[in-house]
């Protein structure tokens, strides 16, 4: 490795191990934004995915199609749409949410809700189909089967939530647009990496990159552990 790069890496680790205040502030804000977004998205997605997975009703395929299509939403388009909605002249301008962490939470929530919903729907639908004949033979109304099915599906649902968190914590485009990357206010790991790299301040960018990678590996490891637990 080149001496300069070694120096950057060493400084990056030094920033991490000394818990450099600016770095800690950025990491904590990132976690706060992503965790809040995941909680909100989970509260929307689990009921929505369960409804779509267990019930057959008119318009179900249409809603499923929309949810699936939204999984591939370009983050910058979400950011732009949200910017227009929240800007001072926009329909939600009075809420004064633009360039706040709340706007970033909303953006992440919009991006990960379709992912968690779709994974939940697939899980519940598969489980429901496995039991469909049995439920019918038992005369079990669908509404009474949902809680036990959700309990059976808990590890898969947890994996879906982790996948959502992974997606949220790696998000940059939308949060940059609606958050504005304001120092001490809306600066999160991904947006800081983009900014500091462009400024040539690679040490902080590298330190945040390492932390992001650790988060990513932790999530992946958790998913593997959860899946193993399920298969035992």
């Amino acid at each position: 490795m080149h001496d300069d790069n070694q120096g950057i890496l060493a400084t990056a680790f030094q920033l991490i191990f000394t818990l450099e205040p600016e770095l800690v502030e950025i990491v904590l804000l990132s976690l706060k934004v992503s965790i809040t977004a995941v909680i909100l998205a989970t509260l929307i997605s689990i009921p929505l995915g369960t409804l779509l997975g267990a019930y057959r009703f008119r318009g179900r395929d249409f809603i499923t199609g929309i949810v699936n299509a939204l999984m591939g939403l370009p983050p910058v388009v979400v950011g732009l749409a949200l910017y227009l909605l929240l800007s001072r002249t926009g329909p939600l301008g009075d809420l004064q949410l633009l360039f706040t962490s709340s706007a970033m939470i909303i953006a992440q929530c919009i991006l990960i809700t379709p992912i968690i919903s779709s994974l939940t729907q697939q899980t519940i639908e598969d489980l429901f189909n496995q039991h469909a004949l049995q439920f019918k033979a038992l005369g079990a109304p669908t509404s009474l089967t949902l809680l036990p099915l959700l309990r059976d599906a808990r590890t898969s649902l947890f994996t879906a939530i982790l996948a959502g968190f992974g997606r949220a914590s790696a998000e940059v485009g939308a949060v940059l647009i609606v958050g504005g990357n304001i120092n001490h206010l809306t600066r999160v790991m991904t947006t800081t990496i983009a900014l500091e790299t462009s400024k040539g301040n690679l040490e902080l960018a590298m330190a945040l990159g390492i932390i992001l990678l650790i988060i990513s590996f932790t999530i992946t490891s958790l998913m593997i552990v959860v899946r193993k637990t399920q298969s035992i």
């Binding site: 496995q130 039991h131 004949l133 049995q134 033979a137 038992l138 036990p148 099915l149 309990r151 059976d152």
Partner: peptide, 13 residues
């Protein structure tokens, strides 16, 4: 009246 399927299914509980 109850009906026992050839391959019954159960909750994983």
């Amino acid at each position: 009246r109850t009906f026992l399927l050839q391959t019954p299914t159960f909750f994983k509980q």
